[in-house]
Design a binder for these strands. Structure first.
Lengths: 341, 341
DNA sequence: AATTGGTTCTGAACCGTTACGGTCCTTTCA
DNA sequence: TGAAAGGACCGTAACGGTTCAGAACCAATT
């Protein structure tokens, strides 16, 4: 039977025809994919674990880019891509246990996420993305710390010393508000922790007391969060000359808030982002561009690469500092004078 | 063993602990999801079939919205979402056969697609989206024909009689160029066929000879296609007063091309789209808004609804005509005079 | 005629789980 | 004290394929 479907060369055409005929007559719907998977130990799909609600993946431009790249790699290999529902609110990891997949890609989850732990217990290859190097599984990421350090150096060169920061969530608990240095240091999101640490290092080197810098955290990642985060920073210290956001989406929201307050960007205030999404590009945002699509594709390639893997591989992709139209010297600062009246 | 993991009430805590202990000691990685699926006849996932390359789904705003809605529904039900790789170039339907899923959602594929046929042969519930009503499976869609008819009536009311059309691919073969009425009528994409037919009906009623209207088809769905399609129409007949596009993406491209030719929208030429995507909204595009997210959610709900289903259900969602800033009366036409000098 | 070689076909084992029914032991009540 | 009832535990049979060993058959060679 199995041979009739999958191995036509093993039997005579005549028998094959007869088998298939009676199969159809009996209403046999073709080999069951699950039974096949059990026997062959191949599911023909890779699982994607996201910390956010599944639907969030389709709302964040950077996540969409990552998905596109990952889908590209899956497509090339002819495997399916299973989006695993991992509600961050619940501790329920059953969805991870139930996922019939040949491997997992884990995208930007907090390092203490129970879903991540559940994935690592599964005896299948795994690639983590935007996570710390676990040493046991493959990793894809960028140098968040170095990239942010470079961006900070740019701002310092422009003369900024009094700054504010708006960042994404730092842990699984909701904490919309100012962030203590302790919380920054202990952040469970690798990406955010390293971006903040890059900033802290650069500004500390420039003589800024980092513990006095207002850093505001937002749980939800959307423009509204960027706007309200910027508002909170500006309420605390209206004198800041630059708002550094750890994502473009937040930065776009921050620009909205600046406009609402009559602050011109970059004349009155500098705003920077991170990611290099399309909307930011159109707004001329100063940011760090990271190859999100390539990141997804690299993750997929790593996972689906059947070659002998000696030890876990770690891939760092290159980023690019984009100097846009949203950064300039502080009001009355050095840069300003070159063009000013 | 199974009970220790899944049915703690069936055995004493002491035994459970002992079982789990030795399991860990033996390096048992937990129940195998595939074997479980085979036994319980539940895969815990639904499959999504797209006609395009998988990665396309993450590039088209309307598709992204649909995916978001579908993901929302899956999330609510705690099921995974398997993206089935169905390369339209190849006739290879193995990916459909290999997909271990409890049901399929089929999104906007040509009605003669072999992948669709393969899905319908599988003994699992199916929901088709933006497809003709097959009578045998659930369906979700909109009244493409009626919506486009209404949009056409709006343009006719403005005074447009000399129009051009840019549409998406009408069949599986690439045919970038003008479309004969025959090909329009025989289009294998339900959505495109009905939108064109709505247009044809409205303009015929207004005394326009539809067979003389330039209709240009583009295989790839992106802004560049919209631009080149518009160019082809305008080259054929520079006198057209309105460019009707069957999607917002194409319309945005058409507007780019108009600008390139020094044509002001809507003063010199009217451009309309279909879908109601964000970028179109920002551009003030006259279009038909369809609830893409709701469409995805409805498809998921229909599929995951375990209630007794009497006969296949068919859901039509409401659309809304959006009169934007890209439509006005033709040059020197009636509308123009009201505001003109 | 017996051996060899090759092809086609059949049957059984196995993949890892869950569902089900049976055994055994303990408790309860007449 | 004995029978009935109930709970805990265990063994086994599917689920539906794939794979592989070997049987059966036929033709060619010795």
């Amino acid at each position: 039977m199995s041979n009739a479907y999958n191995r036509p060369d093993q039997l005579s055409p005549e028998l094959r025809r007869r088998v298939l005929d009676t199969a159809r007559r009996l209403g046999y719907p073709g080999p069951d994919p699950v039974a096949r998977s059990l026997r062959t130990r191949k599911a023909g799909a890779v699982g994607l674990l996201l910390t956010e609600n599944l639907s969030y993946a389709f709302r964040d431009p950077a996540a969409i880019g990552f998905l596109e790249g990952l889908a590209l790699a899956c497509e090339d290999a002819g495997t399916g891509l299973l989006l695993v529902p991992a509600n961050p609110e619940r501790e329920d990891v059953a969805s991870v246990h139930r996922a019939g997949v040949d491997g997992f890609v884990v995208y930007s989850v907090p390092d203490d996420d129970p879903h991540l732990a559940a994935v690592l217990e599964r005896p299948v290859p795994t690639v983590v993305c935007d996570q710390p190097d676990l040493g046991t599984v493959d990793r894809v990421g960028i140098d968040d710390r170095g990239a942010m350090y470079e961006l900070a150096k740019h701002l310092i060169g422009l003369g900024h010393r009094r700054i504010g920061v708006v960042c994404m969530r730092l842990a699984r608990d909701r904490n919309d508000g100012f962030v203590t240095p302790d919380r920054q240091h202990a952040a469970h999101f690798h990406v955010q922790r390293n971006r903040l640490s890059g900033l802290a290092e650069a500004f500390s080197e420039a003589g800024v007391d980092w513990s006095q810098v207002p850093v505001v955290e937002r749980f939800d990642h959307n423009m509204a969060s960027g706007a309200s985060g910027a508002a909170q920073v500006l309420d605390r210290d209206p004198q800041v000359t630059a708002l550094i956001c750890t994502s473009d989406v937040l930065a776009l929201g921050a620009m909205t808030e600046a406009g609402r307050r009559g602050l011109r960007v970059p004349h009155d205030i500098t705003v920077t982002g991170f990611d290099g999404i399309r909307a930011g590009e159109e707004a001329g945002l100063t940011t760090v561009r990271q190859p999100v699509l390539e990141k997804g594709r690299a993750a997929g390639k790593l996972l689906l690469d059947t070659n002998e893997r000696s030890r876990p591989r770690s891939v760092n992709l290159a980023t690019e500092l984009i100097i846009g139209k949203t950064s300039a010297g502080p009001r009355g600062g050095a840069e300003e004078r070159w063009f000013g009246p």
